[in-house]
């Protein structure tokens, strides 16, 4: 019997998820032995035509990382969906839209304008903005189209399972791969991580005061974090109470607050809204003036509370006038 076929693909992401696979260290050898890797652009020389040539459903499982924000990415994941029995959204970007998803606070025109015309690093006088199609003496050149809106993977294709994290922790990857290769398939739609918040695993759990209150928001760049005390109780925005555990609290171990990459538990519909509601409950002030003062101490609320999940949130993106932009948003 032939070995199960596995594919890896990346879309709008930083490459960290690919690193995470390599982070399996020697365990990767076991994986490589157990499966046939049929597609992995970052490491192996397979082309799109090779995938197109495969039978539908012939890939056992595709691990896709990154958010979806271009026509090319959509074509590729759509193709992989057809060829795969199982698709796993791998990492925060595929799961919830991730950091690229924060682009949803702008639209395409504003982003291109900033990146190609107005950014201080652009040669002054540049007026060229990428086009999807241009005719040059040698013929017609094309580029994939950048979408107005960044999407999570399951907003474009059907996703079977999710491996959350930025990047997903090695132990969860191993467990997921083993589970699937052994044919012990969980419920479709399952997030392959524990369904309890990180506080439970936190090494500083015992230091949490009974009366957890915030009088001032602090940023790690401005104050030194006491390595032995609950980070949130010190006023640093640690989102461990909102975030799924499973990462081993590595950020806390490194004396940095949890930023929420593992996403919400299954019971929470919108990570950012829940995080805001939870954190706001801790603010120690009764009058509006004092509340405003404390809240003003919080830098970049969207980037903090929706750092990994804006596209998958209930609001998806900033408001666009129905006739604005005109760019098509893919599937």
């Amino acid at each position: 019997m032939s070995k199960p076929k596995v594919a890896f693909y990346w879309c709008a992401s930083c490459g960290g998820c690919e690193e995470a696979v390599v982070d399996l260290n020697e365990d990767i050898l076991g994986v490589v032995q157990a499966v046939d890797i049929v597609f992995w652009p970052v490491a192996l020389d397979f082309k799109r035509q090779d995938v197109e040539a495969m039978d539908d459903g012939s890939i056992t499982v595709s691990f896709i990382n990154g958010a979806i924000r271009s026509s090319e990415q959509y074509e590729m994941v759509e193709l992989l969906r057809r060829k795969s029995k199982i698709v796993i959204a791998f990492g925060s970007c595929a799961h919830l839209g991730g950091i690229p998803g924060l682009a949803n606070t702008f639209d395409r025109a504003a982003m291109l304008k900033e990146a190609y015309l107005e950014s201080p690093s652009v040669t002054s006088g540049n007026t060229t903005i990428p086009q999807t199609e241009i005719t040059v003496p040698e013929g017609k050149l094309t580029l994939p189209e950048l979408w107005d809106t960044v999407k999570s993977l399951d907003q474009t294709i059907k996703v079977d399972y999710y491996l959350p994290g930025c990047p997903p922790p090695a132990n969860l990857i191993k467990e997921a791969v083993t589970t699937i290769l052994e044919g012990r398939l969980p419920e479709p739609g399952t997030i392959l991580a524990p369904d309890i918040a990180l506080c439970e695993d936190c090494p500083r759990r015992e230091t949490k005061p009974d009366k957890l209150i915030i009088e001032q928001f602090k940023r790690p760049s401005q104050y030194i974090i006491d390595p032995d005390q609950c980070i949130l109780a010190q006023g640093f925005l640690c989102l461990g109470s909102v975030t799924r555990k499973g990462c081993g609290a590595v950020c806390i171990e490194g004396n940095m607050p949890c930023t929420g990459c593992m996403g919400p538990t299954s019971r929470v519909k919108d990570f950012g809204a829940k995080a805001m509601s939870a954190i706001a409950s801790l603010i120690d002030a009764d009058d509006e003036e004092k509340i405003t003062k404390i809240i003003d101490g919080m830098a970049d609320p969207v980037g903090t509370f929706y750092r990994y999940s804006l596209p998958a949130s209930i609001i998806h993106r900033s408001y666009q006038k129905p006739d604005g932009g005109g760019a098509h948003n893919g599937a």
Partner: peptide, 20 residues
Amino acid sequence: EVCAGCHTCLNVCPYGAISY
């Protein structure tokens, strides 16, 4: 089964109904 013991709720109850 799924409470992580994060303490967030302890302080918000106006009726003192929640304990840890």
